[in-house]
Amino acid sequence: MSQIEVTQIIEQIKEEIEVDASGKAKASVRATARLAGVDEKAIRHTLENAEQKPSKLAVMLMQHGFQSAELKQWKKNGIPDIAIAIILEYYAFDANRYCNPQARLVCRSFNAIGIRAWIQEKLGWAKPATSHETALTQIQLLAAIAQQMAEQEQRLLQQQQQQAEILSRLKDVEIEQDRFNTPCGHKYSIVGFATLQGLEISAKDASAKGKKASALCRKQGIEVERIHDPRFGKVGLYPESVLIEVFSSNSKDKAIAS
């Protein structure tokens, strides 16, 4: 007899074992006999004759507080879990030649936790929650949900911060890449650069500055790019660094003249 076989027996007699709302268990005479590994008739005989001719097993049951009249009712109402434990112990150790290894194995299976807990476990019974426990569970659930939401919000903030840091780094990379690709700065026309700086410039001044910018570009070996302009036809595009120098020198000239 193995634990696997005991499990199979439990499965076969499961419908004949029940647990009430308070957790107390009971089993039919047949189910108890199957657990003890004995003939059902032997247990029935013990229960039927408990008052007139009590057997050794009946005496053991009565020594544990059961009345002889109760034993007879068990045939119909089922055997209480405590009585099942006594019956199993009897057939495991005290029944002399009727002792059997199955009863000992089942005894060992539930001795550590008790027959009631053992049956509850086998039937998957769980103690019903009281109103206080239910309320506490709901409060705990709400607290858990709130905690999850807080953690989720924190993760979202962290993600937003990480995204901002990534965008900042990308911006820095773009600036550095732009600086590398255009070491002299971006290119503008004379009028375009003046507008960017918020300056008013006449066509004459624009032409003069264009000539200066072209001269500086030739001196520095920078090729001047030409684009179409609806007002002037073709105009040159000059690096920002050159235009800064041209406009700065013009400001200095005006300051000296004044």
Rank of each mutant, 00 (worst) to 15 (best):
L61I: 01
F110T: 00
H45K: 02
I113H: 06
V29M: 10
L123M: 05
A33Q: 08
Q63D: 15
P80W: 14
A143W: 01
P80G: 03
Q148K: 07
I79F: 13
A92S: 12
N77T: 10
A143M: 06
K127A: 12
V29N: 04
I86V: 15
Q73L: 10
P128A: 06
K53C: 11
D39N: 06
E151C: 00
A143Y: 00
R97D: 12
M62L: 02
A33K: 05
A92H: 09
I119Y: 07
Q63E: 15
Q63F: 06
I87E: 12
E121D: 13
L57D: 09
A129I: 13
L35N: 00
P101D: 15
N111A: 09
R104N: 07
Y90P: 08
A69T: 06
L141N: 13
A112T: 12
I84R: 02
L35A: 07
Q52N: 05
R34F: 12
I113T: 11
I139E: 13
F66Q: 01
K122E: 15
K72Y: 15
S28E: 03
E70Q: 08
L141H: 13
Q148C: 03
A150V: 06
Q102L: 15
L47G: 00
A117Y: 10
D81I: 00
L105E: 04
A83I: 00
S109D: 11
V38E: 03
S68Y: 13
M62E: 12
T134E: 13
Q52V: 05
S28I: 05
H64R: 15
F110S: 01
A146K: 13
E70F: 02
T130A: 00
L35H: 10
K53W: 15
V106N: 03
E89R: 08
I82Y: 10
M62A: 02
A129G: 01
Y98L: 11
H132C: 01
V59P: 03
L142R: 06
V106H: 03
I43V: 09
Q140S: 10
S55R: 05
A36M: 11
A69N: 02
Q73S: 13
G114S: 09
Q63I: 03
A50I: 10
K41A: 08
G114V: 07
E48N: 02
E48S: 04
W118H: 04
D81F: 03
Q120P: 00
I115A: 07
V29L: 04
L35M: 12
E133H: 02
H64D: 15
R108Q: 14
A95L: 06
V38Q: 01
W118F: 14
I86T: 05
W125A: 02
L88V: 14
Q120G: 04
N96T: 10
E133P: 00
A58C: 08
D39Q: 05
G65I: 05
G124N: 02
D94S: 04
E51R: 09
V38L: 07
A85Q: 09
A129S: 12
M149Y: 08
N111F: 13
P54I: 00
A50N: 09
T137F: 07
A31I: 14
L35F: 15
Q63Y: 08
E121R: 09
K122G: 01
A69I: 05
K76N: 07
R108G: 10
K122W: 11
H132V: 11
